[in-house]
Amino acid sequence: MIAAWHYVFAGLRVESDRPLAPMSACEDVAIDRIDLRLRRRSRPWMKAVIKDGPPRHWIKRLDRDRVVLAIEDFGVICASPGLLEWAIRHEADWREFQGYLLGIGLGISLYQLDVIPFHVSGCVVGGGAIAFSGTSGAGKSSMAYALASAFGGEIVSDDMTSFQCAEKGAFMFPGISEVRLFREVVSEFREDRLRARRDERTQKKYRMIGARRALRPVEVRALVWIELERGSDFGIRRVVAGERLRRWRDSLYAADFGVHLGRPARVQTEVLALASKVPVYVMTKGLRVTSVRSDCEQLLGTIERDLASK
């Protein structure tokens, strides 16, 4: 009998043989169905990879049923449908390795289990979730954390989770609640600074430990796409769901079924908004980090006024 910890992640029930602090514990007493198991292993081939590095032919292992990741200086992760096995180097930092395991490792597991991973960060304020999407470094985590911190909300997920569309609306599943922020942003949250720990892996970001977290799926109030524009001031405007898709479609020759369009994160946001009827906003901001708190106040004010006028 092995020790086991149970968690929920993106709507999946996860069992791990090691405690995983950034994940939310599964509240169900009867664990009758486990979707994903995380296991520490010391298989000979894993030891060999840790010692000598991956052999060149390993690229062949990158198929849907078995993905092996050799992470330099840290260890090995092997993802098969429903099973995430890992081995860590003796001298590696567990917290940093955990970042890989719960980031790229879980992302691959979602694919293998037919769950669409959404690249979003979100928080609950005022009884519903606000989900932020945008390219890497756009400020998704900063906005989610700042909103939760300023208005007594909870983090639903940082960086990745999944959604479920209902008749009218969408639900965001809790994911990882340990938010990673840039130093400039951390310095804005003076009262929270003691909770921030340097992320040795990225060297640029800090992990905010112990943020209040949502434990159940949360109905989404608004989807916000963050658009970075050089020299731009903060701005927020509601857009018609599907507007961008129409422009893309019209610019393409779509005579046959199967037109592939790029910019997956923006595509995801548009399709989700179209399918769920959740209001979608575009938030523009400059490249320099200014005041996240003040951005949050303007953003929430706009959304609240908008929803109140309906």
Partner: peptide
């Protein structure tokens, strides 16, 4: 409009 697991979109 369909959003597939591979995050492609299809019309």
């Amino acid at each position: 409009v369909l959003l597939s697991l591979e995050r492609d979109m299809y019309f």
